[in-house]
Design a protein around this nucleic acid. Sequence first.
DNA 1: CACGTTGGATAGTGGCTCTATCCTAAGGCT
DNA 2: AGCCTTAGGATAGAGCCACTATCCAACGTG
Lengths: 207, 207
Amino acid sequence: MQLKDLSGQTGVSSASIKYYLREGLLPAGETVNATRAQYSAKHVERLELIQALRRIVGLNIEQIRGILRMADDGAPRLALLAAVQRVVLDLDTPAAGSGDVRTPATDAVVRIRNWPDYPSDARNALNAHLELMESLNIPVSGELLDAYSKAMDDVAGLDIAATTAPYSVDQLILTAAVGMHMHSQLLLKLLALAQASHAIRRYEPGA
Amino acid sequence: MQLKDLSGQTGVSSASIKYYLREGLLPAGETVNATRAQYSAKHVERLELIQALRRIVGLNIEQIRGILRMADDGAPRLALLAAVQRVVLDLDTPAAGSGDVRTPATDAVVRIRNWPDYPSDARNALNAHLELMESLNIPVSGELLDAYSKAMDDVAGLDIAATTAPYSVDQLILTAAVGMHMHSQLLLKLLALAQASHAIRRYEPGA
DNA sequence: CACGTTGGATAGTGGCTCTATCCTAAGGCT
DNA sequence: AGCCTTAGGATAGAGCCACTATCCAACGTG
C-alpha cells in the first residue's frame, strides 16, 4: 500500500499525510527504495487515531505528538492513560504547576473520598485550580467540594471500567481519549440541563 | 476620560481598544466632537468584562459580541444566563441542532430527575451529544445517565444559588460566566483525580 | 502655533493546520 | 526504451484568529 492508497482508504489528503509525516505523527512507511514506500494497516489505524484526536477530541498536533511518542516508546499503559487524561481534561494549563504541592482543601478531598494519597497531574491541577478560584474570589466551600467529589467518585468507577483491554495501543488511546472526552462533555451537558432546570424553577415557578 | 486613560486604567492597549470598538464589543465613547470622545466608568467595566471573557473563560470575539448585544438590547436575565451557558458550556457545537427534538434517553433523565419538561439549548445539546456518542459506539446505559444526572442535579442547586443579584448586567455576566467556567473546570479536575485514583487502585493495588 | 489625540482605514504579525507547487530520482507498464 | 506516475524533500501560500502597528487628516488644548 502506498501513500495514495493510504489517502484513499482514510479520506485524508496526501498533502496532509505528508504533513503528519513531517511532524512526526505518522511513522515513515517502509522505504523500499528512494522513491517508494510501503504503508500498512498500522498506518491506517494510526491515521484514524490522529484524525479522531484532532477532530473529535480537539487536540493539537503538539499534544498528539506527545502521546504518540509515548506509545511508540513503549510507555506503560497507566502512564499513557495519565498522559491522555492530561491533554483531554486539560490538566496542563495550570502553567505555574511548580511541582507537587499539597493544599488543605485537596488533602481534605482525598481523605474524605478515601482516595490514595499519591501525587499526580490531576492532583496538581486541582490544587492549582482551587488556588485560581480563590484568587478570583470564587468561594469553594467544603460542602461543595464534598458534593462535587462524591459525584465524580461515583462517575469515575463507571468510566474506568470501560477501558478494558483494547486490542492495540492505538486502540487503547483511541477509546480512552474519545471516551474521556465524550463522558466529560456529557457531564457538562447534563450540568447545563440541571442548571437550566433549577433556573426555570426559580425564575418561572409556573412550570 | 479619553481613550488613553481608559487604556491606562485597564492595562489594555489603545490598539486593542480600537479593535474592540471596531468589532462592536465596546460601545463608542460619547463623541464630544470629531476628534474627541469621552469614556466613562461603564467602559472600564465593560472592558474588564471583555478581558475576563477572553482570557479566563476563553470565549472568542464572536461569542462575546453575541452576549454583549443581548445585554445591551435589554434581554431578560434568564435569557442572558442561557446565552452565557450556551457559550461557556459549549452547547452550540452540535451543529445539526435541527430544532427541538425529543429522545427517549433525555426524556427519561428529565422524568427521573423530576426536571421541568421544557425545551432548551441544554436539552438539545444533550440530545445531540447522546446521538453522537451512539454513533461512535460509546454505550451510555440508563444507570450511567442516572448516576451522572443525579450528580449534576446535586451540583446545580449549589451553583445557581451563587448567582444572586449582582449590581449591573455586566457584573451578572461576569460572575455567571466566570463562575460557570470555574465550576465546570473544577468538576473536570475532580473527575480526573477520581479517575486517577480508581486507576491506581486498579493497576497498583499496593497503594 | 505646536503638539497630541481621535476616528477611520489598512496592513502586518504570529500561531496554527493544513494545502499547493515544484523538483528530481526512480519504478512500473507497454 | 519510453512515458507516466509516484516518493520524498523543500518551500511557499492559504485561511483563520486576535491582535498590533502605521498612517492619515481633522481638530482642540496649552
